[in-house]
Each structure stands twice: as C-alpha cells, then as structure tokens.
Design a protein around this nucleic acid. Sequence first.
DNA 1: TTGTACGCGTTATCAT
DNA 2: ATGATAACGCGTACAA
Lengths: 382, 382
Amino acid sequence: MREGPTITTIAKRAGVSIASVSRVLNGLPTRQETVRKVMAAAEELGYVPNSVARSLKSARTNQVAFAMADIGNPVYLAMVREIQPVLKAAGYRLVLHSTGADVGEEIEVLRSLGERYVDGLILIPLRVTDELVEAIAAARAPVVVIGSVPDGLRVDNVRTDSRTGLRLALDHLYALGRRRIGFVNGPLDTVPGAARAGAYRDALAALGLPYDPDLVEIGDFNRAEGAAATSRLLARAPDVDALMCANDLIALGALHVLRRAGRRVPQHVAVAGMDDIDLAADAWPAVTSVSLGSAERGRAAAELLLDRLRDGDREPRIITVPPRLVVRASTVGEDAAPSGPADPAVPEQTRPGAPERTGTRFPRAVPERTAPGEDVVREGGG
Amino acid sequence: MREGPTITTIAKRAGVSIASVSRVLNGLPTRQETVRKVMAAAEELGYVPNSVARSLKSARTNQVAFAMADIGNPVYLAMVREIQPVLKAAGYRLVLHSTGADVGEEIEVLRSLGERYVDGLILIPLRVTDELVEAIAAARAPVVVIGSVPDGLRVDNVRTDSRTGLRLALDHLYALGRRRIGFVNGPLDTVPGAARAGAYRDALAALGLPYDPDLVEIGDFNRAEGAAATSRLLARAPDVDALMCANDLIALGALHVLRRAGRRVPQHVAVAGMDDIDLAADAWPAVTSVSLGSAERGRAAAELLLDRLRDGDREPRIITVPPRLVVRASTVGEDAAPSGPADPAVPEQTRPGAPERTGTRFPRAVPERTAPGEDVVREGGG
DNA sequence: TTGTACGCGTTATCAT
DNA sequence: ATGATAACGCGTACAA
C-alpha cells in the first residue's frame, strides 16, 4: 500500500514532462516514441489517475447522491436497484444517504451539495415543508425530486398519481360487491398520507358510498403499525368487508391481524395495498396492490438527472408514472379444498396498461403450477 | 445555482487574506475583529467549503465504499443498514457498489481504489479467486473483507462460522427425530456454497447418518431457484422428513413447494434456513434459521475499517461472529384447530447465546397475542 | 496577528 | 510535438 504514483512520477521515469504524460494518458496527439515511453512507465508503476485532483480541475465528481428515508423500505430499495446501474452505466458512482424521514436531515443533505462532493442529487422526501422547498430551490447542484412538490418549484420531478391509483383499487373493491371499505392510512403529515386520505374520500364519494370515520385508521407506513391500526379498525367496525391499505407493508400487517382474528381473506375481508412491492406478490394470499412504478420512477429520476447533468440549462421537466392495479388473491381468491388440486388459478391482471411483471418470480421450470393466486386455495382451509 | 463562493471570495468581501479566512474557518487563534468580519462575509455569501479541494490537500475523502453482489439481497441489505449509520456518525459518506456477484467487477472496484475517491472499502465477495486475493493484497486503500479469505492474506476480516451454524441446525433436526435430512445448497463454486456442502457431510457423519446424494440438490441462493431445487429433491427423495436450506431465501422457496405438494411443515417435513433474514421470521410458518449475524458483521466491518483509518499500521484483525440457531415454527410447530383459540405458543429460542431479537416486530400494543411462533398453531389447519 | 507563497495532482494554455 | 506554467480551492509553513 505504498504511495501511489502521479503523473510527475511517470514523467521522471519516462524522461518527459508532465504535460506529455497528461497528453498521452488523455489520448491527445503525441509522438509514438513518447507514447510508448509514457505508457510503459505508467504500466510499470501501476498508475491510476487521482480522481480527486481530476475533480478539482474539472469541477465534476462523477458521483451522484440518492437520499431517502430508509433503504430498508422495499420501495426505496426497488428504486436504488434501478438507479444504481443506470448511473453506473453513465460513469457515475452512487452515494447513499439515509435520512430517517427527518426533514432536518434532508435539508442538511441539500445544503451539503455546496461541498461539491457530488454532481447531483436524487431526493425523495416524505414531508415537504416550506424550509425544504427553500432548500431545494437554493441547492448548489442539480436535484431531482421523486414525489409531489408544490407548483412553481422549478425542479426536475418524477411523480406518480396515487390518487388515481387508490381510485383504481376502490373501484375494484366496489365492483366485487364490497360496500364497507375500510382505510388504513399512514401519517397525515406526510405527502403520501395526506394525498391518500383525500383520494379515499373522493373515491368513496364518486362511488356513492358514505364516509364513515369508524372505517379509517392511521398508523405508520410499516407492517407493525399497519397491524395495530387494523386491529383498532376491526374493533370499531366489525362489519368491514374490505380494507384499503395505504401501502403494502400496512397490508401485510393487516393480513396478519385478519388471520389471527379468524377472518378469511378475501372471503370475509378483501385486502388491497399500494406500491406493489415484491412481498405483496409473495404473501399468502398474494396481495392485490396498486403499483406506483417504484422501479420506473427510480430509473426515470436517474435518467432525468443524467440528462440535466448534460444540459444544465434546459427547462425543468416533470415525469408522471401512471399507477396500475395488480389484482391478486387477496381480493379475488376463491375457496378450495385444503390439500386438493388447485382450482383454476386466478390470473393476475394489470390495469390499465399491459401486464409488465408477474406476481411471482418462480421459473417455469418448477414442476408445480405456480400461477399467481394459487396460494389462496389453501388460505381458507378450515 | 450560481457559482459557489470560495475563500477568495470571502477574503475580498471581508478585506482580509485567504489565510485569515482559512484560519477563522478552521478555528485557529485569530483576532476577534477579523473573526467577526470573516464570519459575517461567509454567512452572507452562504459559504460552504469545497470538499474536493479539501480532499486533495488532506488526502482524505471522508468516503467509504461498500461492495457487495446485490443490495436486493436481504443479507447485504441488513449489513448496509448497519454500516451506514456507523460511518455517518464518524463523518464518512457511503459509496455503494453492486458487483452482481461478478469477480471481475469486484476486482475492478479494488483497482479503482487507486483513484483515491474513498478512504477505504468494505468488500463482501462471493467467490474468492486467486486474482481477487491478489487484488486485495495490492489494494491502494484499507480493505475489510466480510467472509472467509485464505490464511496468510493480511487483511482485516469479519467472518462467521457457517459450518458450526449448519451443525447447530442439523443437531436440532436430529434431536427432533428427523433422519432423512435433505440439503438444498447454493452453487458449489461460491465460498458459502462450498463451506456448507462440507459442513453438511461432516454434520451427518457426526450424527451417524449416511450421506445420500439423492438428498442433496443445488440451485442458486434465491427463492425461485430454491423452489426449483426443492422440487427436484422431493421427486428424487419423497421420504425426506427435513430440509436444511443453505439460506433463508431457498427455505422460503422450499416452503412454497412443500405447501403446493401438500406436505405439512413441520409435521411432514421440517424446514430450516440460514441467515435469519426478516422474511424468515415473518413467513408462514416462521422459519427456523441459523443467524449468521448479518447486522453484527456489518457493524463490525464498519468499525474495523474506521479503526484502521485511524491507525493504518496496526496488525490485521479477524473478528468472528458466532452463529445462533433461532428456532421457529417451521421445525417445532404443532397442529391446532384451524380457527380455534391459540395453542400455547411455541417460544422462540436462541442458541447458544441469549435471545437478542424476537421473531416478530409487532408492538406489544397490538391487541392480539403476537408471541413468536404463534402462526404455527394455524399452519397445519387442514 | 496577518499576509504571501507553495503544494496537493490534474488539465489546459501558451510558447517553443 | 513538447515543455513550462497557470489554474482549480484549500491548508499551512514561513515571513512580516
């Protein structure tokens, strides 16, 4: 782990000037003999250009930051998995920031852009305060925000339409005959929480259903809190026949509680979630979910940022990823003998677009049929 | 997004030299009046020190890289979640590399350390080739390797003992009366795959059980391949009464296949996995798993690296995280009435150490009993 | 106490 | 074609 060689080292070794070394290394026109000597010296010394010095000179770091609340969240994880390869292909490294859903930390990340350690930032805030908006506007490097931001904030933006998404799910539940549709939401002071609360009311109104406060509960956007909130809701509204969950983790918690309470899903209570995370498809029964295109949003954000890094002066752009309802067993599953042969599997449907992914990642090679929805045939086995 | 101010800008504004600005900003003894002027100017201009220039001067970047196969893998994810806050607390940023389990990419990351964009690297290779070992030895920055490396390689190292871990699980299965214990392993050309293959044979021998090739199948370390491999194994050895899976994802795939095949878990076939990922505890039935301390290993690696960054000359250190068997319903679950009141919950046990985590993350506030293992009382309901 | 000047490693400009 | 030299922004001896 000795000191690394610099162009100066190479210059001495090759008996030329540092300028020549630089030219050779950068492929600028140089005499063959010089090229040979420099390359040889560089090879022998195991030269690797110092990216810090290069950054200082070029004012570019080839690094991009991604800041989200917690990488443990499947939605953010799905985004990172898309963002990383896109950036990598473009020659950028990824710096990860976990803000713990703390606005202060998000603002701190935005301020830190002044340190110039990255060329840009992809930010996905949970709560959008005035202070955050100011920080975004004052950012010293290009920023792409995933999520809704106030109109007038000139920033590249990737969003989805969770209102329409929730509407898709409620229409689906209604079409199945459900009329007592509960709603387990996340905190109202978060952007998604607030949006989904409004969307729920609107959707009910559009369907001609009354808004019943007893049918609404709030917990955090995770499985444990989702379970707790569902318990409270069940206690207050025992006649609920469907549960709309503000995200899939909440839905998984709901499934757990419903099973414990002896309620069959979907026979007694249909369950739908949002985000279409992998676990939703793998759950038992598989969870009907509104895909908000996490992966697509991640990719779009990365590409938007890369584009902006090429042309810093273009107008801010907004990309909207449409929601899709992915229907699975938790809303349309059917009864079956506990160990008997599978009933006709319920095909997974995607609306409104064409199906882009399946509810399961099992290869065709598996002998057993692994069509989505099959698990439901065992769910109610009692 | 105008050009950021530098110390030169501030110097002019405050009417002092750049040296004075630097002194003030670094808290060196300076006249009060000068301090005031400089701070005022810096404040007005919104000065933020340029980390690139600082790095060039100090030869430290305050960045650390973490390279693993795929952040989507729950084990690596658990590590990142531990590593990130530890590094952050020490003032380091995290640069993420996904190598896709490609040795070439891992070597590339090691070589790139010569670019000096990070102060150190935490690497978790899946396959350890001679070339990789050479690259580690020749690394231009401190490296901490998670996983087993050849003796004699002088590098900070965090490992676990998956052989003993697998032994714990097999002893457990044997104690439960299982004698036809199958093994669903990952690729043999990976370090964990090879180690576990040997451990399986050794453990069988120690227990006085014969080694039966029909009881062994190999797939990749994921759910889909685990399911496929399990299917093949079931076809070849229908009398299998226990399945040891080389990791939890494989175990989840096995659960799926067993359910489809009408085999009850654990009544007909007991299932055990490795890694103790969150999904193991949340599965249905909850999966008995050998914890290899992913989080602990991540934290240990981060701390080892930080320590090394403070003292680059100390001897390489090896930290071994002991495996623990976490017993859950997939091996010790019992029958119960499908919808009746819960049987005495099977307590989650941890061996050999004391229990450090529970099999569920539901809060006590949840009305229903949420003791670990409770799911098993409903599992066999058929 | 403060200012000048140099170096970190690279790229780019300008003579030669 | 090549070499000397000036930036990039910061920290720090050294001189004043």
